[in-house]
């Protein structure tokens, strides 16, 4: 995962390297929408990464799309890139046209009501990434069917919120007509919680890779007591553990991305990966700050763009405990005699 596997990933990495510098991160951190950066990403085609080429997209595989998510984490890209990629995937899955602008996914807190005059989509979806800036795509079920609804930006009433990393996480209240051309029946369960959890897992692995590199570089450069921090055995040992956790996160990210295809997801693999990486996230952030000393917690130094995202992302789309419980219940149901065979199928 740490190396781009094809030309699109390669070009994406170059674009992020050139464009996603401290200025963009600082301005997003202060609450601005990085419109110019978004326009460049859109011109490059990232929002349409998962849409087939004949529908105007990049036609990437799910695996490659996860490569982009990894880069988004590695550069702390302060825009709803992965959310929009997935929203467009969902739209085309349901037979609706993909859209260019930033989008968010709504799949919690909504329901279908059926008053005279036709079906309506109602409810409030909490903690929507960049809800204030995005056109929502909702997935909702009633007693019989599930639907995908493409909404306009103006159709949601926004209550603004932010996560620990100052990324917008808004509550969107919706009351929208479901009788128009913007609604389609979705024949398969798109498993959005799993897909979003897998994306966050991969983003965390990307952020951890950056944190690992920053911490090692800092330890080699910073001198105390007349020698670089890297020469102290205590520092070497804690950075070795940090490197292990960065590595295990990259392997878990491989697991998560391998567990997602266009047609299905493997829940236990995603659960294991997301929860394991979420657990490592706290350790990685703590060690990185410990090695960096005071400069690491100053606003001007860039470490916090990554550590604060880890502290946020580990709780999004299922924290460790909720996924661990889900795995544990599945294993308990299978019973002790099937424990090993279940594990080898993850």
């Amino acid at each position: 995962m740490s190396k781009p596997e094809n030309a699109v990933l390669d070009a994406t990495e170059r674009l992020f390297l050139e464009r996603c510098g401290d200025e963009v991160l600082a301005s997003a951190n202060a609450g601005s929408w990085s419109g110019e950066f978004w326009d460049e990403l859109a011109a490059f085609g990232l929002p349409m990464a998962l849409v087939s080429e004949d529908q105007g997209g990049l036609g990437l595989s799910m695996g490659d799309a996860y490569g982009i998510a990894q880069l988004c984490g590695q550069f702390a890209v302060p825009l709803p890139v992965v959310e929009t990629m997935l929203a467009n995937w969902l739209l085309t899955l349901a037979g609706l046209p993909a859209r260019d602008g930033p989008q968010c996914l709504l799949f919690e807190g909504l329901s279908v009501i059926n008053p005279t005059g036709g079906r309506r989509l109602v409810g409030t979806c909490p903690t929507v990434p960049w809800g204030r800036n995005c056109a929502p795509v909702a997935w909702v079920q009633d007693a019989e069917l599930s639907y995908v609804v493409a909404l306009d930006k103006s159709q949601g009433e926004v209550a603004e919120g932010i996560n620990i990393a100052n990324e917008p996480r808004d509550a969107l209240t919706i009351d929208a007509d479901m009788t128009g051309q913007n609604v389609a029946v979705c024949a398969v369960d798109p498993a959005l919680t799993e897909r979003c959890a897998a994306l966050r897992c991969v983003q965390m692995a990307g952020a951890m890779a950056t944190i690992g590199e920053m911490s090692i570089a800092f330890a080699m450069e910073r001198e105390q007591f007349g020698r670089p921090l890297a020469k102290f055995q205590a520092i070497q040992q804690s950075l070795a553990v940090l490197a292990e956790q960065v590595a295990l996160a990259s392997v878990a990210a491989q697991m998560a991305s391998g567990a997602v295809s266009a047609s299905s997801v493997q829940t236990l693999a995603i659960a294991s990966a997301k929860a394991r990486v979420g657990e490592a996230a706290g350790d990685v952030a703590a060690t990185a700050h410990q090695v960096h000393g005071a400069i690491g917690f100053s606003e001007e130094y860039r470490l916090h763009y990554f550590t604060r995202r880890l502290w946020s992302w580990r709780d999004e789309f299922g924290n460790e405990t909720s996924w661990f419980e889900q795995i544990g219940r599945a294993i308990a149901k299978a019973g002790p005699d099937r424990l090993w065979s279940e594990l080898t199928e993850i």
Binding site: A275, E279, T321, F324, E325, I327, R329, A332
Partner: peptide
């Protein structure tokens, strides 16, 4: 369940 799931 959480303890078992975590170890798995």
């Amino acid at each position: 369940a959480a303890a078992i799931g975590r170890l798995v």
